[in-house]
Design a protein around this nucleic acid. Structure first.
Lengths: 229, 229
DNA sequence: GAGTGGTCTAGACCACCAC
DNA sequence: TGGTGGTCTAGACCACTCT
């Protein structure tokens, strides 16, 4: 007899890894497993659902549950604010606003945000520092028209990154990671050489059909984004 | 009255976004919400648990459920085999094995895999092609001693990437993404210039305490890794 | 049509931890 | 120590989809 759903999940995982249940094969139904493990069907369901969400099982009504043939594993990335990320490394965080002005969005940004070219937004350029050294360079367009409260806060106190998380949080977003060569201005801000590879994170954030912000974040050489599977 | 847990989740999410429940505030308990929504407590539990896993709520016994103050959002990355990734773009996949020989692991790899320097492993260098053009360059060390079956298959037919997923699948792993400058050899393989930025994916895979493989995957300029929140 | 997973319910017990 | 979330159960109905 197994106790809870975690034990059931562990045992099912063991059988998959040990190839007692091979990829593509149908495994016993929930009812059968519930009897075998001496638990309720809901407990088996919880265990199998978690494994299916992780990509190891494929479940279909009537067809039953199979071990995934070509599993598409899901890794989770934790997206926190930059201050937390820096402080988690045991370093002191600071930020400097390099630019802050109203400006019409260029084509590339308009396409990403799904707004017409030239719409007036707040353009912000910020440098994030870890222990006094450049950590990340941020370029952001902020759709101030849809901001809650109406007034635009002073981002030199609380960074836009953090202010948005606290005030426009819980929005949906689209994130893309890539590698690019630093432009002259970007390199200067980060204290590296032009052409050096930078790790780029671009994100569009939406709330209820309205685009809130587009942000482009550059991390210099040495930055690594990690996760586990 | 709301029907299922998805409706409950949607309504709770709406209240959070509408700031009816502000960050840091304790929301009503499961029992109260169950009564309000006209569902069983288990249904409310399911809805709140999902929101907590997404990082929007913080739940603690006795203390209750709060709207997260500084939410650490979780984005999920889908890790599929390279052939699937290429074919999903509507392009024809192919791969070429450039190198395949036994070799002692260098220090950097030994440290990553947690094995002594110089342990003999199979060194593999593979080029993945999409529509005939270089798509990714793969360098891999394979711990053949712990492979199931014992015999090493012919990776020119099925790439090591795919063979491992099918035969040593469901292992745990550690993944890191970064941006680097392509070395001369790497650039030549990918058909780019030395020093061009490349998107690097490094992964160590383990099964039951034994490291199976270390792989370093390089994607040329233009590659983007995308996800949603 | 029938078998499987998906979900809901009402009740229960327990672990944790703030008070 | 009491209140809250975490989980389990037994039973039920339903939705989907394979045959």
């Amino acid at each position: 007899m197994m106790g809870g759903w975690e034990e059931v999940r562990a045992e099912v995982l063991r059988r998959i890894r040990a190839r007692e249940w091979v990829p593509g094969a149908v495994i016993p139904g929930e009812e059968a497993l519930a009897v075998e493990f001496g638990v309720a069907r809901a407990t088996v369901n919880r265990a199998l659902r978690e494994l299916a969400e992780a990509g190891l099982l494929e479940r279909r009504r009537k067809a039953g549950t199979r071990v995934a043939l070509l599993p598409v594993r899901k890794a989770t990335l934790e997206i926190s604010i930059i201050r937390q990320e820096v402080e988690a490394r045991g370093e002191v965080y600071a930020h400097r606003v390099l630019e802050s002005r109203m400006e019409g969005v260029p084509l590339a940004v308009a396409l990403r945000m799904g707004v017409p070219v030239g719409v007036g937004m707040l353009f912000l350029e910020t440098l994030h520092l870890a222990g006094g050294r450049p950590f990340a360079h941020e370029v952001r367009w902020l759709n101030v028209g849809v901001l809650p409260g109406g007034a635009v806060p002073d981002f030199s106190v609380t960074s836009a990154n953090e202010w948005l998380v606290q005030n426009v949080a819980y929005a949906t977003g689209d994130i893309a990671f890539s590698a690019e060569a630093a432009s002259g201005a970007e390199a200067a801000a980060l204290g590296i050489s032009a052409g050096d590879p930078v790790f780029v994170t671009e994100r569009v954030t939406w709330t209820a059909e309205a685009p809130i912000t587009f942000v482009r974040l550059l991390h210099g050489p040495g930055y690594r984004l990690r996760t586990m599977v």
